[in-house]
Design a protein around this nucleic acid. Structure first.
Length: 433
RNA sequence: UCCCGAGUAGCUCAGGUGGUAGAGCAGGUGACUGUUAAUCACCGGGUCGGGGGUUCGAGUCCCUCCUCGGGAGCCA
C-alpha cells in the first residue's frame, strides 16, 4: 500500500486517510507524552501530532533530535481538527529526518533588528511575513503581464548594458571590450520609444540601476520597472492608462492575495478606494495648494518630499501631479502648448506616504525642439543620434511612463521599507547576500 | 555629501548624579497526554563597536574613527 504525498495546501483533500508531507520544522512543543511539530512546506503551515503511546520508541525518540528548520518527512492520518492552526492536522505514524539543522538557526519567532535580518536575508525569506510579500510581488508581476497582454501590448526587453544614454542620476559603469565604458541601464524608455514605432503599443519589464547614494526607505540601487510606451497617445491618454493599470494591480491583489495581505496585517479598506479616476492636479495648482498649506515652495521648484506628503494627504487614493516646469524634468518631455514654461508630464503619487510610484510624460516628437533640448542639457549629441532618428523617420505623438515595481509592492503590502519587497535587495551599503 | 539617532550575552533590550554588568527569548538538564511564539524549575553564557583622554576608578564623562538605522538631496 502506498501513501500519497501531499503539499500542505492540498492536505484537506486527504482527510480521513493517510498522507506523507515533507517540509521544514518551524515550531516544536512537547508535553511529555504528546509532542507537536509545526512545519512549513511553502504552501502552508501544518501542525503534526506525535503521541508516545501510538508510535514505536524509535519514532518517538526522533522528536528529541528535531530543531527549528530541520527538514522532515512525516506520514500519518489526516484529520480536520479545530485545535490545529489551519484546521488540518496529521497524527504521525512515521517521522523521518531528511536534513538536520544545527541549534544556532539565527532567526527566532520574535523581534529582530533590521541589520541582523538583512545579514540573514537568505534565511529571513523563510518567515511567514517575507513569504507573503514575495507572493504579493509575484501576483503583481503576473498582473502586469496580464494587463498588457489583454490590451494588445507587446513586451520588449531592452538592454541592461548601454552606452551613456537616459537620465541624469548616478550610473554604474564597467569596462566594455574596445567600446569604452558601458553603463547599467537606468531606464529602457528610449529603446521603448523605438520599439513603439515598430509595434505600436509596447512595455518593458526589467531591472534598472541607479548609483545614487540614497539612504531612504524608498530607494534601492537595483529595482524593477515597467515602462509602457504607446504610439499616438497623448498625455491624457497616458494618465488614463496609468490609473487603469494601477487600479488593476491593486484589485488583483485584493482578489487573489487576501491571505497574504491578512498575514501582513494590511488595512485593505484603503486599497479598496483605488479605482479610476484619480485626481489630476496641475503643477501650478499644486504650488498654490502647497503655499496655502504653509510650504515655502515657489513656482519653478521641484516638489520636495514634504510637498508630496502634503498633497497626498488631501486624497484617499493615488493622485496625479502634472505639467511640471521644464527645468525640473527630463529633456525628452514634450513642451506644453498651453504653457511653454512647462512640459506634458505626470507623477503618480501613492497614498499613505509611499510617494511617487509612476513618472510619465508625452515625449517630444518635434525634431528641432528635441535637438535644442539635448544641446541645452549639454548631453553628448552623438549618443542620441539614433534617438533623434525616431523623429526624422515618421515622427509620431507618443507617451509612456515608468512604474516602480518595488514601490508599488511596498504600498500594496504596507511594508515600511521598500527593501522587504525584493528577495535580495541591493542598497548602497549592501551587496550580500 | 549633509542633519538626527543607535552600537551592552546568539537575539531583543534595561543599565538616575562615574564604583569593573542585568532581564526576556534562544541554548542545556529535568517535569508535564492537546500544545498554539506552551508552561514550570535549575544551569551555562559578556574583550559593554575600535582607539585615545579625564579620573584612584569609565558601559556611564570628553575627543576621534568605524558600522548601522532614519531623514534631506536625487528619483521609480
Amino acid at each position: 500500500m502506498t501513501v500519497p504525498t501531499s503539499r500542505i495546501v492540498d492536505l484537506h483533500t486527504h482527510a480521513g486517510t493517510a498522507a506523507t508531507v515533507r517540509g521544514w520544522v518551524t515550531h516544536l512543543r512537547s508535553s511529555g507524552k504528546v509532542a507537536f511539530i509545526v512545519m512549513r512546506d511553502g504552501t502552508g503551515t501544518l501542525q503534526a501530532v506525535l503521541v508516545k503511546s501510538a508510535v514505536p520508541p524509535e519514532i518517538w525518540s526522533r522528536f528529541a533530535e528535531l530543531t527549528q528548520e530541520t527538514s522532515i518527512s512525516i506520514t500519518g492520518d489526516v484529520r480536520m481538527d479545530a485545535r490545529a492552526p489551519g484546521g488540518v492536522e496529521v497524527g504521525i505514524s512515521n517521522l523521518d529526518i531528511l536534513g538536520s539543522s544545527p541549534i544556532d538557526y539565527p532567526i527566532q519567532p520574535k523581534e529582530h533588528g533590521v541589520d541582523f535580518l538583512m545579514d540573514h536575508r537568505h534565511l529571513w525569506l523563510r518567515s511567514p511575513r517575507q513569504q507573503a510579500i514575495l507572493r504579493v510581488r509575484h501576483e503583481v508581476e503576473q498582473a502586469i503581464q496580464d494587463f498588457f497582454y489583454e490590451r494588445g501590448f507587446i513586451r520588449v526587453d531592452t538592454p541592461i548594458l548601454t552606452a551613456a544614454i537616459g537620465e541624469r542620476s548616478g550610473l554604474f559603469s564597467t569596462e566594455y571590450f574596445d567600446e569604452g565604458t558601458a553603463y547599467l541601464a537606468q531606464t529602457g524608455q528610449l529603446y521603448g520609444e523605438a520599439a513603439a514605432a515598430a509595434l505600436g503599443r509596447i512595455y518593458t519589464f526589467g531591472p534598472t540601476f541607479r548609483a545614487e547614494k540614497s539612504k531612504t526607505r524608498r530607494h534601492l540601487t537595483e529595482f524593477w520597472m515597467i515602462e509602457p510606451e504607446v504610439a499616438f497617445f497623448d498625455s491624457n491618454d497616458n494618465m488614463r492608462l496609468q490609473e487603469d493599470f494601477v487600479s488593476f494591480l491593486v484589485r488583483r491583489c485584493l482578489d487573489r492575495r487576501k491571505n497574504e495581505l491578512a498575514e501582513l496585517e494590511r488595512d485593505t479598506s484603503k486599497l479598496e478606494n483605488v479605482v479610476p479616476p484619480f485626481a489630476r492636479l496641475d503643477y501650478s495648482d499644486a504650488v498654490t495648494l502647497l503655499q496655502r498649506k504653509g510650504s515655502e515652495i515657489k513656482w519653478g521648484d521641484d516638489l520636495g518630499a514634504e510637498d508630496e506628503a502634503l498633497i497626498v494627504e488631501e486624497y484617499d487614493k493615488p493622485v496625479f501631479v502634472m505639467n511640471y516646469p521644464k527645468e525640473a524634468k527630463a529633456f525628452y518631455m514634450k513642451e506644453n502648448p498651453a504653457d511653454p514654461r512647462t512640459v506634458l508630464c505626470d507623477d503618480c503619487l501613492a497614498p499613505e506616504g509611499y510617494g511617487e510610484i509612476i513618472g510619465g510624460s508625452q515625449r517630444e516628437d518635434d525634431y528641432d525642439k528635441l535637438l535644442a533640448r539635448i544641446k541645452e542639457e549639454g548631453l553628448p549629441l552623438d549618443a542620441y543620434g539614433w534617438y533623434l532618428d525616431l523623429r526624422r523617420y515618421g515622427t509620431f505623438e507618443h507617451s509612456g511612463f515608468g512604474l516602480g515595481l518595488e514601490r508599488t509592492v511596498a504600498w500594496i503590502c504596507g511594508t515600511p521599507h521598500i527593501r522587504e519587497t525584493s528577495a535580495f535587495p541591493r542598497l548602497m551599503n549592501r551587496l550580500k547576500p
